[in-house]
Design a protein around this nucleic acid. Sequence first.
DNA 1: ACCTGAACACCGTTCAAGT
DNA 2: ACCTGAACACCGTTCAAGT
Lengths: 210, 210
Amino acid sequence: MAGSRPDRTRKRPDTYHHGDLRRALVHEAAKTMQAHGVERLTLRAVGDRLGVSRTALYRHFADKATLLAAVAREGFISLRGELLTAWQGAGRGLEGLDAMGIAYVQFAITHPAHYRVMFGGFIDSGIKDPEFEEQASAAFQVLVDALIALQREGLVRRDEPRQLAQFVWATVHGVAMLGIDGQLQHQHADARDLIQYAVDRLRAALAPRD
Amino acid sequence: MAGSRPDRTRKRPDTYHHGDLRRALVHEAAKTMQAHGVERLTLRAVGDRLGVSRTALYRHFADKATLLAAVAREGFISLRGELLTAWQGAGRGLEGLDAMGIAYVQFAITHPAHYRVMFGGFIDSGIKDPEFEEQASAAFQVLVDALIALQREGLVRRDEPRQLAQFVWATVHGVAMLGIDGQLQHQHADARDLIQYAVDRLRAALAPRD
DNA sequence: ACCTGAACACCGTTCAAGT
DNA sequence: ACCTGAACACCGTTCAAGT
């Protein structure tokens, strides 16, 4: 074995912890969750996978719940990005709102485990870290801003924007959750079909008072 | 303390298992869940509480997931009852639909742990028993029937009833979930306020084509 | 400061054995 | 048929000890 380089590509990377072990932990946890579900995620396996002690993560996270909160936080950052892309990619307007709804559900059914950690009550509400809360409301704010813009153009009724946004959010969140739960299968209709119909109904629900 | 009757109120009821241990297990599991959350539910504690061996329940349930499925099934039966009561109590019609939405969210925020077991993906979709599925769709059917009745009266647009019902369900389910998750608190608005607004918007969404 | 290794308390589940 | 008690494999977390 020629040690030509200070070899970084060994089987057991015992120098993974050069500062961003924290980031590596979050990434690895998200990956195994995505592959096998949240309930099958064990801290020991995460440590092993990273070639690190099983207890190493306690230098970076208070406990498992805190690690999950960090994973959820990453999820909200991704979700926010998808929403913004959809909104802008569709040229804003009512089509932009439709696109956001579809992108939202698409995100959820593409990353069901991740999505469940974000909303499944794993975080123990009330004690969830501020950085979690911050990213969650940043994602929500994208929707609020979009609705305000639509109100200015006279395309959406002028109710209190946050309440309006919560209503829309609840609808797409409901479609996403039911889809993840496999509760929409019986009629060869899935979440993708339902969100298509739902954005249509939402238009009627949000139409300005005549 | 006069033992006038064949005392059924002893500290350690060692004859709990006279045939309906299964029912007792489901009831006890639901109770501790309700009190301390799903994640704090242990089979050992349930057995102890019932004065029975920790492994006694394996005579009645394949594993913990199956017990939880039975608990969820009971939840759907209760939910169905609440929905029917609300619908009929409000004299059917659009007011009946509003009442159902409000009763739905009321059920969820009153029994958050129970509700989460019903929808939180604990049941491992695909392998969930038929009796679970049966009661879930029985509850859903109440909504479908109501919407069909409203369509007949010309009060609701004549879209495919199941799709219409799924849309309504997604909305109230979303409100319920966000409420349970504590995601609606920031603006001193809670799930009860939101569902009030939501049923209003739903009326617009469901209005017949003019 | 950061990580390790052994230990602790706890869990779901299995299984031979009792009645 | 139904239940028990001991045992197994596994988990999150703690803590003294190493560098």
